[in-house]
Amino acid sequence: MFRKYRKKSPWILHYNAGSCNGCDIEILAALAPKYDLERFGVINTGNPKQSDIFLVTGPVTFRSRERLVELYTQMPEPKVVIALGSCTCTGGVFRDMYNVEDGIDRYIPVDVYVPGCAASPELLIDGVVKALEILEEKTKAIEKPFRLFKEASSENGIINRRHSALKVGEKDEED
């Protein structure tokens, strides 16, 4: 019944998972007078418990991954996740660095990928519009983030942790 109002008041939580700040400046540009995202009812709340859209920038550094998952689990359903910027989608220029996790979709389910380094405000607005379409379809069923990666394995000299991924709630044999 209230489903159609989801589209009209998307509140955004922005989290910087170790980005270079290029994309964050573009977000500010989108909120500023020229593009004025607030005319669609968008508010940048900064509070996970009251937001609908999780807007992440940055390739997820080793230190920021726990906060990323924590913020994600603190957001009430229904919610959508937008990965903003190339490095958030795939690791971008930071790919395969020793302290970087190559994109947020290894930890949390992502709904919209917005490419570009830095992604332009127009692309961001397109991404938000797409995300709103998805948000309207969503139910209150809980989506689970992935468990934090544990051991790093090395493969052809490249260290990564993606083989030890588990969903939260999945049985962990080693514990």
Binding site: R3, E77, P78, K140
Partner: peptide
């Protein structure tokens, strides 16, 4: 209206 439809 949107807040009514959110998980609490």
């Amino acid at each position: 209206y949107k807040l009514l439809d959110k998980q609490a």
